[in-house]
């Protein structure tokens, strides 16, 4: 179990290290003279255009990490990951090939985000009983 604790710490340190780095960078970028260089600005801009799958993916990650049903629609975790990946891939291909310069509406973004949360909760749950 010592190994387990060490590896757990290692992965935790990686996640929180990267998060801390992003926060520090975001603060630094907020303080400089250049506008529109912030991380949140870029993600917002990309997600309102051809990379609109980010709205869905963000919702999926939120539903996956923080919610999660005890009885997901697809009990097999690998299948649910493939389903979510395929949906995201379709959105990426559609966005890159067909959307071009267009912006998607706010209502569509809200819909995508909520659908993502529901998908993360109902499809890709970590709270189901494995044993």
């Amino acid at each position: 179990m010592d190994d387990f604790k060490f590896y757990y710490f290692l992965v935790g340190a990686l996640v929180f290290g990267v998060s801390a780095l992003m926060v520090i960078l975001e603060f630094g970028l907020s303080l400089n003279k250049t506008q529109k260089d912030n991380i949140n600005y870029h993600i917002n801009a990309w997600s309102s255009e051809r990379f609109y799958f980010i709205n869905f993916a963000w919702g999926v990650v939120g539903g996956h990490l923080f919610l999660g049903s005890k009885s997901p629609i697809i009990p097999e975790n690998t299948v649910s990951v493939i389903v979510v990946a395929v949906i995201s891939l379709i959105m990426i291909i559609h966005g890159v090939c067909f959307l071009k310069e267009k912006r998607i509406s706010l209502s569509t973004r809200i819909f995508l985000l909520l659908t993502g949360f529901i998908a993360g909760h109902m499809l890709w749950s970590m709270n189901d009983y494995v044993l």
Binding site: N40, S47, L113, M126
Partner: peptide, 26 residues
């Protein structure tokens, strides 16, 4: 994912911050 999931409830603040980041970004 497992590490983040297991951080609850001690670090429940991350859930709140995720909601806050969602509003801030989108």
């Amino acid at each position: 994912s497992q590490v983040v999931l297991d951080s609850s409830p001690k670090y429940l603040i991350f859930i709140f911050l995720f909601g806050l980041a969602t509003a801030n970004i989108f």
